[in-house]
Amino acid sequence: MSEPILSLRNINKSFGAVHVLRGVDLDIYPGQVTALVGDNGAGKSTLIKCIAGIYTPESGDYHFDGKPVTVSGPRDATALGIEVVYQDLALCDNLDIVHNMFLGREKKKGVTLDESHMELLARQTLDGLSVRTVKSIRQTVSSLSGGQRQTVAIARAVLWNNKVVILDEPTAALGVSQTEQVLHLVRRLADAGIAVVLISHNLTDVFQVADNIAALYLGTMAAQVKLSEVSTNQVIELITTGKSAGVTKTEAKK
């Protein structure tokens, strides 16, 4: 296995008296999909917010590309090349696909917007992800389906050459065929060399695309294992009880 691009060691985070993350370790590898699973309240959201710089952990080490870094705000995470696609996608319905992909980071020529340049880059990115489901890249986001919106949000994260893309429940609100589309897209992201973190409650999805699974249980990392080494039942045990016969916590460290 190659070196992890992002690795967290012994992360602790409390909110008042509640100790949400207790010494969590996590490794994220380039070109792989790491599924982050865990029951409600296990600390998945808190963990990704720590990665994204929205929360600052009380203690723990944050290594990026082998070097220790301090991430004390969302800007630091963005600067490292970490992008989170949240569940609500944060798209503007009244703007078109190109506008949304460049929102807040518009390409300019002098004082005016360089529409042609942005359209070309957006098109290249969508083509690179083999997105063929949108009719025109100048249609407004309000006219897109749920899966297409997810695609636009993911493509926006890819457009800026991010090294780590974190997807928060990307298939939660989608139907069967759209879920399929998005999972294919997730796979292609990883194949393009991006380190993908997939947060999901749906183990079918996880087993379809993930390379390794990190299971959180009550704020601790129950295990981080290769997908090929575990069964669905073992993962369910990890999520519900924090341990499973045949899976030891040490496997997470390899």
């Binding site: 609500d88 503007c92 319905d93 009244n94 703007l95 929102l103 807040g104 004082v111 005016t112 917007l113």
Partner: peptide, 24 residues
Amino acid sequence: GRTSFGRHLYAVGGNAEAARRSGI
């Protein structure tokens, strides 16, 4: 229509939270 200020106006009107997260 042609400046980023105008684009940001539409963005804030369409989804202020999305605009804020995009760094506007």
